[in-house]
Design a protein around this nucleic acid. Structure first.
Length: 910
RNA sequence: GGGCGAUUAGCUCAGUCGGUUAGAGCGUUCGGUUCACAUCCGAAAGGUCAGAGGUUCAAGUCCUCUAUCGCCCACCA
């Protein structure tokens, strides 16, 4: 057997295993009885057992893996691998989102480098270019997910613009249109002048900026007087069609029914009264621009005002803006202010903090803009989604996110779904542009699942499809069922829908999670998933979000290259229990753990070289061959198994990782491995050695299973190395991926052993502490170490460990207190009812120990005092549960005994 | 402006039903490498649980207020 390097080198091992797994089809869901892959629309019978399904939050096709993805997908992979090991048919369905605006931007940028524009190219050619780009670069993130170890079923990989999903999008649009849930109309939407498209409310991100509040004067018609009003966007006055006051505002009663002259454009506009106006804000008079402000738009409807759109799609002033035509909105703002100043109508400006919408993509300030768009009527959908939650059909974890979800749904507004871009699902609506005489009848748009050939009204074949495409999220919200074949009733849809768990970040609860729930309920009639787990946001140290634009990224791919995917995964889970602040150093945690597992395994292997012992759980039938420490080890393993399972069930990833970490490192390596070393070092074969090897290999093997969901590559590698070195059916099968998830077997029957070892550990720690404090070198033989124990039980337990304690601290005699009194230079420490003494001390050492003991005594005295106070309280005795009261009494007794021992010891030292 | 969350060791965070002397990792200090791993082992030090009230026999834990920080949402021009 070749010798293994003393450090773990992950790179080749990870590549090797991923290839093996994928080729072998291990990621496909499997029939629990036959073990055969479950293929979509297969003729074979579906299992009766409920599957475990996760659909991936599809990353953008333009994306590269960042830490957020790494965390998100690690958590999904942990659940999937864990359930797979439990023998559940498990599907993790991967895919990629076409990311309309983002992708279009990327390709446009590429064209710009070649001095090209999409307009010059034309729509058809441009879309071809995007597809070409997608073929070349679109699988980047998918490859990176593989590097992370994601055990997705790649045979089911989907793309939001592939044929099936496009059909689902069309079906949805038509269905919702038929149900009266999609409509088209002129409304104020968020317009990004740079992307030149409408955005949904969620895509217009409010950010606080420091603007100015400008106060200006409008002359009142026919009176020679003026009114003052305040605005943050003076240039929009070009589109004013009224000014408004509060009907009860005493200051402005004289303005009722009056008209004002709009400066610069000289338009005469009415003074209207509306409750909406807040008399407290500004001057109490507000300019009304129905085409450029959502409130003013509503005002305009109530008062029948004209809507004058003064902006071009690129944000410049259009012909309605007279002399300002052609100026960008911000230049126009300056010019308007200047001109007002020149005319003496400007009354000043003051700094003003306010939240302004920014394009989520390019961060340009968006303009409220009047235009004709398609909308989804959200209230009816939201009702269903709220009901599903209140009935417990969807559960959010951690539960506080529930309120975020319901709060949004309760205040939902209609969803603007049309986008004026070219990359995406073109809206399945056609308009007849044929026969002029037919125009009246043909005004009705043709909304169709199939491309229509002719106008159903006039028969004209001159049809024009709506040029807009749908919001990317209009395909994403169908993801949990469109990927399974919907609207076709595939076997996948029947078997895997609804899915089990959705794992995602907080940012897309509105964009995606809530909308998926609405779509699932409306279109399939069931929630798309039962549990939504929201994980923390990954940030860099200092608190900023980690993002490419801030240049503060810790690249997960670099980390994989340096320390391996397993180490990255484990570190992330340990670090990102809540919102996490990361730094490169923190990833050492995972790296060190991989190395620890590697080396512990290597150590075990060195003792397996000779005879390829049988790895068996058979020792359960021969308990008499197991020592206390063996039984303790097995009990610890079981505890780790139970706790890890419990945590995974509750999506408590950090706790689960923490448990396996401590179990492996501290219980297995620091205690068990160290304790059995002397046995293993013996050259001669012995029954004891056999027993130890059995337990050791068994525990190692079970640990590998337990750790596998977190660190799949390393555990698979070590598992195979172990397999080569032992015999027996405990290590069978081709892969650890399908090794059954461990179950507890000791069922508490080694409780006594656990208690004994805990006591022993305390004793050993005490001895080490003493030795360290006394400055004894490890090899230095000191006088004697004595142990005394008051109760017989403890005495027995301790004598059982004489051998082990010798190994650490040389217990030469087990004796009793009486004998000790005769010795000189003793120092002692008390552990419950166990005492340890070391002899042969200097004067100085004795003095220090006396001081320590005095401190300890006063600490204990205080404790006893406070317990006493409690016990003397009548209310406590009367109202506290009996077991609490008796526990207090017990504690007091304990402390008093310790106190007595320490006092006696103090005498010894003096 | 509204909502949510946080505040516990030098740092990052656990702490479940209110009940033992409040825990871990990192960092620090001290000691240690022939015998798997210095990416290691052993030990220690380190806490007014943000502050103030309240409920309770009992509060890190429940309630109220205050302060600071973070996040999300929002059409006061």
């Amino acid at each position: 057997m070749e010798s293994l390097p003393n450090r773990y080198h992950p790179n080749e091992i990870e590549t090797k295993w991923y290839t093996v797994w994928e080729k072998a089809g291990f990621f496909l869901p499997r029939h629990p009885q036959t073990g055969k892959p479950i293929v979509c629309d297969s003729a074979s019978k579906l299992p009766s057992q409920k599957p475990y399904t996760i659909v991936i939050p599809p990353p953008n096709v333009t994306g590269v893996l960042h830490m957020g993805h790494a965390l998100n997908n690690t958590l999904q992979d942990i659940l999937i691998r864990w359930r797979r090991m439990q023998g559940v048919p498990t599907l993790w369905l991967p895919g990629v989102d076409h990311a309309g605006i983002a992708t279009q931007n990327v390709v446009e940028k590429k064209l710009a480098k070649a001095n090209q524009t999409r307009h010059a190219l034309g729509r058809e050619k441009f879309v071809e270019e995007v597809w070409k780009w997608k073929e070349e670069h679109g699988s980047t993130i998918v490859k990176q997910l593989r590097m992370l170890g994601a055990s997705c079923d790649w045979s089911r990989e989907r793309f939001t613009m592939d044929e099936g999903l496009s059909r689902a999008v069309r079906e949805t649009f038509v269905l919702l249109y038929e149900r009266g849930l999609i409509y088209r109309g002129d409304y104020i939407i968020n317009w990004c002048p740079r992307c030149q498209t409408a955005l949904s409310d969620e895509e217009a991100v409010h950010q606080e900026i420091e603007g100015a509040l400008y106060q200006i004067k409008y002359p009142v018609e026919g009176t020679g007087g003026f009114i003052s009003l305040a605005t943050t966007r003076p240039e929009t006055m070009l589109g004013d069609t009224a000014v408004a006051i509060h009907p009860k505002d005493k200051r402005y009663q004289h303005l009722r029914g009056k008209k004002v002259i709009l400066p610069l454009v000289k338009r005469v506009i009415p003074v209207i009264e509306d409750e909406f106006v807040d008399p407290e804000f500004g001057t109490g008079i507000v300019k009304v621009t129905p085409a450029h402000d959502p409130n003013d738009f509503e005002l305009g409807i109530r008062h029948g005002l004209e809507r004058i759109n003064v902006l071009n799609p690129d944000g410049s002033i259009n012909e309605k803006g007279g002399p300002y035509q052609g100026l960008d909105r911000l230049s126009a703002r300056k010019k308007v202010v200047e001109d007002l100043k020149a005319q003496g109508l400007f009354e000043g400006e003051k700094r003003h903090l306010h939240a302004v919408g920014h394009c989520y993509r390019c961060h340009t300030i968006v303009e409220p803009y009047l235009s004709k768009q398609w909308f989804v009527k959200m209230k009816p959908l939201a009702q269903k989604a709220l009901k599903a939650q209140s009935e417990g059909k969807v559960v959010f974890l951690p539960s506080r996110w529930t309120k975020v979800y319901t709060g949004w749904l309760e205040n939902i507004r209609d969803w603007c779904i049309s986008r004026q871009i070219w990359w995406g699902h073109q809206i399945p609506v056609w308009y007849c542009v044929g026969d002029e005489t037919c125009l009246l009848e043909c005004k009705q748009p043709i909304v169709s699942r199939e491309d229509p050939k002719k106008c159903p009204a006039c028969g004209s074949t001159r049809l024009r499809q709506d040029p807009d495409v749908l919001d990317t999220w209009f395909s994403s919200w169908l993801w949990p069922f469109s990927t399974l074949g919907w609207p076709r009733q595939t076997s996948d849809l029947r078997y895997f829908y609804p899915t089990s768990t959705l794992i995602t970040a907080q940012e897309i609860i509105f964009f995606w999670v809530a909308r998926m729930i609405m779509a699932g309920l409306e279109l399939v009639g069931q929630v798309p998933f039962h549990t939504v787990f929201i994980h923390g946001t990954v940030r860099v140290e200092g608190g900023k979000k980690m993002s490419k634009s801030l240049g503060n990224v810790i690249d997960p791919l670099e980390m994989i290259d340096e320390i391996g995917a397993d180490a990255l995964r484990f570190s992330l889970v340990m670090l990102a229990a809540t919102d996490a602040f990361l730094s490169r150093e923190k990833f050492e945690l995972g790296r060190n753990f991989t190395n620890k597992i590697w080396n512990a395994s290597r150590f075990v292997f060195t003792h397996l070289e000779k005879d390829r012992p049988k790895l068996t759980s058979g020792f359960w039938d021969h308990e008499e061959k197991l020592s206390t420490i063996d039984k303790w080890m097995l009990a610890e393993l079981d505890q780790a198994i139970l706790e890890t399972t419990e945590c995974l069930e509750a999506c408590r990833f950090f706790d689960a990782a923490n448990i396996v970490y401590h179990f492996f490192w501290h219980s297995l390596c620091d205690w068990y491995l160290e304790l059995v070393k002397p046995v293993l070092m013996q050259d001669a074969p012995s029954e004891r050695k056999q027993a130890v090897l059995s337990v050791l290999t068994f525990v190692l093997e079970r640990s590998l299973r337990l750790i596998h969901p977190f660190m799949p590559f390393l555990t698979e590698e070590v598992w195979h190395l172990l397999k080569e070195r032992v015999q027996g059916d405990e290590v069978s099968g081709e892969t650890l991926m399908y090794a059954p998830w461990p179950s507890a077997q000791t069922k508490g029957k080694f409780k006594r052993e656990q208690e004994k070892v805990n006591l022993f550990q305390e004793a050993v720690t005490g001895i080490r502490d003493l030795r360290a404090r006394l400055g004894l070198k490890p090899a230095e033989r000191v006088g004697d170490v004595y142990m005394t124990a008051k109760s017989e039980n403890v005495q027995k337990a301790v004598s059982e460990f004489r051998e082990e304690i010798c190994f650490f601290a040389r217990v030469d005699r087990l004796t009793v207190r009486e004998k000790l009194k005769k010795e000189v230079g003793m120092v002692g420490r008390v552990y419950h009812d166990l005492e340890i003494f070391v002899g042969g001390l200097s004067e100085d050492g004795l003095k220090k120990e006396a001081e320590r003991t005095e401190n300890k005594i006063s600490e204990l005295e205080q404790l006893v005092c406070s317990i006493d106070r409690r016990l003397q309280n009548e209310d406590f005795r009367a109202k506290a549960p009996d077991e609490v009261v008796s526990a207090e009494r017990e504690r007091k007794k304990n402390f008093e005994e310790q106190l007595a021992s320490h006092r006696e010891n103090l005498q010894l030292f003096r």
